[in-house]
């Protein structure tokens, strides 16, 4: 589900939610559908530090752009990862560098989840994605 969705579709879906329950059920379902990472990739080297929930990230790069794979041990964070993937996946590094991920989260009214006060790892994850994009060959 998440993989085939576009940012516009995501924004449209979210605009139909009129209470937190629908929204969080949807996010958790997105998380359940997330491919995630094989156990063998859930290693310290791929772990994003400073999070209360564990978040792991790997990526590959080819001519079509950067592909990220991420996972978490918490459902809501997995769902939010799915949202981030909708925003970034399959894009060129140069595009990702310019992406305003925070802005999309703000439009989805999920910005609080990216805040420092949450400590859920999402902010660190977005920073890592930007870092990967910045280091990718142009």
């Amino acid at each position: 589900m998440a993989q085939s969705m576009t940012v516009d579709e995501l924004l449209e879906t979210f605009s139909f939610f009129d209470d937190w329950e629908d929204k969080y059920r949807f996010i958790i379902d997105l998380g359940k559908d997330l491919g995630g990472l094989p156990e063998s990739d859930k290693i310290d080297d791929n772990l994003i530090r400073g999070c209360q929930s564990q978040v792991w990230l790997t990526h590959t790069s080819d001519a079509d752009g950067l592909t990220f794979s991420m996972d978490s041990d918490a459902h809501i964070v997995r769902g939010l990862i799915a949202v981030v993937l909708v925003i970034v996946d399959g894009r060129q590094a140069s595009e990702i560098k310019r992406l305003d991920i925070e802005n999309v989260f703000e439009q989805l009214d999920l910005l609080a989840h990216l805040s420092v006060t949450r400590g859920n790892g999402l902010r660190a994850m977005v920073a890592r994605i930007k870092e990967v994009a910045a280091q990718a060959p142009p």
């Binding site: 969080y24 209360q52 041990d73 918490a74 459902h75 809501i76 964070v77």
Partner: peptide
């Protein structure tokens, strides 16, 4: 089935 942070977020809501 829930991470403590999931439950915490759902209670916070």
């Amino acid at each position: 089935n829930g991470h403590p942070n999931d439950v915490g977020t759902l209670l916070d809501q």
